[in-house]
């Protein structure tokens, strides 16, 4: 019996998962903004979205799971120790991003990547803040969630779209020219 999931998908999911871990651990994945510490803009969803767009929903789901699990481990506030706030929303990010990319995949991959970036990032914002407001109304009131959602959510969506388009366009371009082994040449 051959493996059910192609090796390529497994390895790319692992590699992008590592990017999510590094972005979180070094705090490079957080862009400081006006609202101050704790309300930084986050681009942590971008590796998940890129995985979903390039390799499909299973990879999106898996990278989201790594990102979610790592945020559970790293969390010190207690809010993200719950799989319902940390794990599930991040796993759905990949699936939603892939669904958003699907209609554009053949003809307009650039537009599709932008739409996937926006959809994936907004999924992250809405589900994470929504689950926080539902499960921990004392720490995160609905008012606060909506405020943060509006101020950060759209900004993050725009940033995610820019980054996703940049990476996806470049990567697909590289694939078309058949010049994938640039790194291999470099290391000879």
């Amino acid at each position: 019996m051959a493996s059910r999931i192609p090796l390529r998908k497994i390895v790319i999911a692992g590699a992008l998962g590592a990017v999510a871990i590094v972005l979180g651990a070094t705090r490079i994945g957080f862009i400081p903004w006006v609202l101050g510490p704790g309300f930084e803009l986050t681009v942590m969803a971008v590796p998940v979205i890129i995985g979903a767009v390039l390799e499909g929903p299973v990879v999106g789901l898996a990278v989201g799971a790594i990102f979610g699990a790592f945020s559970m481990i790293q969390d010190t506030s207690g809010l993200f120790k719950n799989p319902l706030t940390a794990l599930l929303p991040r796993m759905l990010v990949g699936v939603v991003a892939w669904l958003a990319y699907l209609p554009f995949a053949k003809r307009l991959p650039r537009v599709g990547a932008a739409v996937a970036g926006v959809a994936g990032s907004l999924t992250n914002t809405v589900l994470v803040l929504g689950s926080l407001a539902l499960l921990y109304p004392k720490a995160v009131s609905l008012d606060l969630a909506v405020k943060v959602g509006f101020t950060n959510g759209f900004m993050e969506a725009a940033i995610a779209a820019v980054l996703t388009v940049a990476v996806v366009a470049l990567w697909l371009g590289i694939e078309k020219k058949g010049g994938k082994a640039r790194l291999a040449d470099e290391e000879k």
Binding site: R8, V11, I12, G14, A15, L16, A18, V19, I28, I31, W33, L41, V43, V46, P47, I50, L54, A158, I159, V162, L163, A166, V167, L170, W171, I174, K180, R182, L183
Partner: peptide, 21 residues
């Protein structure tokens, strides 16, 4: 800010994907 992160993000992810390949 987002634009200033582009030269960091894009190479990081592309090089990681290349290594994965």
């Amino acid at each position: 800010k987002a634009r200033s992160y582009l030269p960091l993000f894009v190479p990081l992810i592309i090089r990681t994907l290349e290594r994965a390949e």
